Amino acid sequence: MEEKRRVLEMVKAGEIGVEEALALLEALGNGPKASSPARLLRVRVDGHDHGKPVKVHVNLPLALAELLEKLLPEETQLTLGRQGVSLKELLAVVGQGVPEGKLVEVEAEEEGKPVRILVEVV
C-alpha cells in the first residue's frame, strides 16, 4: 500500500506522468500477495545420531506432505513425540491448508547433543 501511495505522490509532484503511474500501479498490483497459498512444507533437522552430525533438509510440495514421515529419521520422529508434537496430526492440519509460517520449532538435547527441528510452510 505504501508503494502505491508513493506512486500517487510522484504524480502529484509532477515527477512522473499518468501513463508511467498506471504502469507502476499495475506492476505493484501483480506482485506476490501476502495471502497467496503456501506451496511447500520445509523441514530442517540438525542433530546427532550415534555421535555423528545429522542434517536433514527437506522441501516437500504440500501435495506430498504425507511422505514426510517416511523421510524423517526415526530419532527425529521420537524427539518430536517427546516434545508433544504428533506428526500425523501436524500433517492432517497441513492437508487442510494453513497459512505460511512456522508450524513447529523444537530446540532440545538428545544424548547430551543439541537437536533443532523446524517445520514451516512456505
Rank of each mutant, 00 (worst) to 15 (best):
K113R: 14
E100G: 14
K33P: 00
L62F: 12
G84M: 15
V18F: 00
I16P: 10
R39W: 11
V11H: 06
M10P: 00
G101S: 09
M1R: 12
P99C: 00
L67I: 10
Q83L: 09
V45C: 10
L87Y: 01
L40E: 05
D46W: 06
T76N: 03
M1S: 12
V56L: 07
E74A: 05
V106K: 03
K4Y: 06
G97S: 01
E111S: 08
T79D: 08
L25F: 08
G14I: 04
V98Y: 02
A23I: 04
L22Q: 07
A63H: 11
A92Q: 14
L78H: 14
A63R: 15
N59E: 15
L25M: 12
A108T: 00
R116T: 14
E2D: 13
V115N: 00
L72C: 05
D49N: 02
E74W: 05
V56D: 05
V115Q: 03
A38Q: 02
K88E: 15
S35C: 07
L72S: 07
E26P: 03
K102Y: 14
E111F: 12
L64C: 06
L28P: 02
K52F: 15
G17E: 02
R39Q: 13
K12F: 11
E19M: 12
L90I: 12
V93M: 04
R44M: 02
G51L: 10
E110R: 11
P114S: 05
L24P: 00
K102T: 15
A63T: 14
V45K: 05
K33G: 05
A23D: 12
H50D: 09
S36L: 10
D46H: 04
P53I: 03
V18D: 03
A21I: 06
L72I: 12
